[in-house]
């Protein structure tokens, strides 16, 4: 009964799958130590150092592997916080409506009114900079409103569907209606939103690290490395190029998955 998956989805899954596999290997094994400074400064890409080396003589490929892992885990955790909390808020406000809805949604408006990077700065300055968990916390909080908004609309539109009315008439409780009857239908909208959110999280983390409020050494995310690379564009352009390309490829792969999922939805509707 399953239809053929569309091309976006297939290509996106392949790219993301390869990145994930390589990153997973990078967690346990890298060709060189990503922090050892003994491979000669500013070596251009060569068979032994395929991405070259940086100003301290570190192997860039090993650093990109580690950095992708850091970026991925921050982005995943961020999206997880945003999606779980956002969907919960969206479900409650969209389904029950009433005073809670008005209050939470106005709070949402207030949060969205701030530029998100400023809000991140504020939260980081409150909880203390430099820790990976604080970056995740700050970004996660910032991502809640958009998920809440998207899912609220979905839950609210489902609320008046006849099959939900029927379930209520049968005596189904709110929990059952929300989780069993509504959530699976919200996933169609939620999954593409998660992929978009993931990409935004990657980019947000990159900008935060770039500005120096993200992760700090010895942790290295792709964004942090990109800001390092900025200082040596002339002496070792390959650092910026390969780090930048990694971010682009990651975002591109996940973006294709999102595009593919949305295309699937359009077919269903």
């Amino acid at each position: 009964m399953k239809k053929k998956m569309n091309r976006y989805l297939v290509v996106g899954l392949i790219i993301t799958g390869i990145i994930l596999a390589i990153t997973l290997i990078g967690v346990f094994w890298t060709p060189y130590s990503p922090t050892a400074m003994k491979y000669g400064r500013f070596q251009p890409p060569s068979p032994s150092h395929i991405f070259g080396t940086d100003n301290f003589g570190r192997d860039i490929f090993s650093r990109v592997l580690k950095g992708t892992g850091t970026t991925l885990s921050i982005a995943l955790a961020t999206v997880a916080i945003g999606a779980v909390a956002g969907t919960t808020i969206g479900a409650v406000t969209g389904y029950f409506g009433g005073v809670i809805d008005e209050l939470l949604m106005r709070l949402n408006d207030v949060l969205t009114a701030f530029p998100s990077i400023l809000l991140a700065l504020l939260i980081i300055s409150l909880v203390g900079p430099g820790k990976k968990y604080n970056v995740v916390l700050a970004l996660g909080l910032i991502f809640i409103p958009s998920f809440a908004r998207v899912t609220r609309t979905a839950f609210a539109s489902l609320r008046d569907m006849n099959y939900i009315t029927s379930a209520r008439l049968m005596g189904a409780g709110s929990g059952r209606i929300l989780f069993v009857h509504m959530l699976p239908n919200v996933l169609r909208i939620l999954l593409p939103a998660i992929t978009i959110g993931f990409n935004n999280a990657v980019l947000a983390e990159a900008s935060m690290s770039f500005l120096g409020i993200g992760v700090t050494p010895p942790d290295a995310s792709l964004g942090y490395m990109l800001s390092e690379a900025q200082g040596m564009l002339k002496a070792g352009p390959w650092y910026a190029i390969f780090t930048g390309l990694s971010i682009i490829l990651l975002v591109f792969g996940v973006g294709l998955i999102g595009e593919g999922l949305q295309a699937e939805n359009r077919e269903v509707v």
């Binding site: 569907m161 006849n162 099959y163 009857h181 699976p184 239908n185 269903v268």
Partner: peptide
Amino acid sequence: YSSLNPTY
């Protein structure tokens, strides 16, 4: 169309 849950 809207009286049956499309998921099930």
